[in-house]
Design a protein around this nucleic acid. Sequence first.
DNA 1: TCTGGGGTCCTAGGACCC
DNA 2: TCTGGGGTCCTAGGACCC
Length: 421
Amino acid sequence: MIALVDCNSFYASCELVFRPYLVGRPVVVLSNNDGCIIAANKEAKALTNIPMFEPVFKIKKQLLEHKVVFFSSNYTLYGEMSQRVINILKTFSDRVEVYSIDESFLDLSDIPEETLESYAHQIKDTILRYTGLPVGVGIAPTKVLSKLANKMAKKRPENNYVCVIRSEADRIEALKWCAVKDVWGIGKKHRERVMNIGVASAYDFSKPPLAWVRKEMTVVGERTWRELNGEVAMDFTTDFKKKKAIGTAKSFGKKLANLDIIEEACSYYVGEVTEVLRAQGSCASALQVYITTNYHSDRDQQYANSITVKLALPTNDTFVLIKEAKKALHLIYKAGYRYKKVGVNLLGIIPEHYVQGNLFELPSTSNNKLAQVVDRLNLKFGKSKVSSALVGTRIKEWELIKEERSPRYTTQWNEMLRIKG
DNA sequence: TCTGGGGTCCTAGGACCC
DNA sequence: TCTGGGGTCCTAGGACCC
């Protein structure tokens, strides 16, 4: 049996852990630049005129009216809280697959079936006690069914955040309960396609012939279909998954026209992604850079372009990558536009020790010591405290807006929670 | 004024190889 | 008269997820 443990309204819950006096009030967390709502606790979700992913400026009035509390996103805090939850989960199973920042699959095949439900409650209660975070636990024979069980655990009050799909009758009941749009792996496009042939529930989707599903929805849909029918069709892996692409792209705090400032932002992002690259012991063999104007604006002239450059030798050297990124940026930048975003992507990622020299060059190792020192300093003193001078000093002119960011309670000594004695 | 960011996997088609 | 068959690698685009 497989359990899916999922934190409830994760980002909002993280904020509430350190502000218990806000419990019971609607709380939302905003995206970078404080642009959209990306997380909401159940009190905020209950306010129907405050939809998720809505731009904040459009619903500012409603937010104030309902006294909604909002936070800028604080990924340092969320990442560290996530790690605490994962550490606890590892005491409940030797096989934990970390699926996302707030979700993990656990292999529970060693747990006697009749005790699964109480085991799930134990997991839930322990996480709440040790971290302050509420979670839901769904247990079933396949991943897709455990996702579904998790949904039932949270949506049906009588379940009290735990649900086990064990018997065939449980499975049928769950499938009939779940709308097809809520099935993990069926998105907007496929939903429309299956609804055209009269499929409304997960149960309906488990009925059409497999050949039809395969033809319309590729092998991905086939796996979903099989797993809904109780057959294991997805791998379970506990391996640390090295990233196959590492990218970052953030909107600027304001629109920018000048190449030299955009260049600085671009270089800064290269510094960030290259650090992630080194942390997983990899090199990139290609680099992609893209820029875009604000496509939401009717008034601005629109332009967007991207370029991918293959590197002569795969590398994780920040200085080399910044130089390449700048060259690439010059090729796609056009004067006369007000840009909103620049992004970089590292592609063709391979293990460091696979890098092969070519006829004219050996793999570069000259900067390794320097990179190690820089990475250590940044780990200790905070992100990007030390960076290449190519990044420049005008960060204030492009950095994102985070007006309501909470303190990094768990990772910075000087931002720890203070309790009056 | 103001509209997120970071990923994965799959398929089709083109270019190329022997 | 008659012009193959089997394969790899790469990229772009689509679909999906949190």
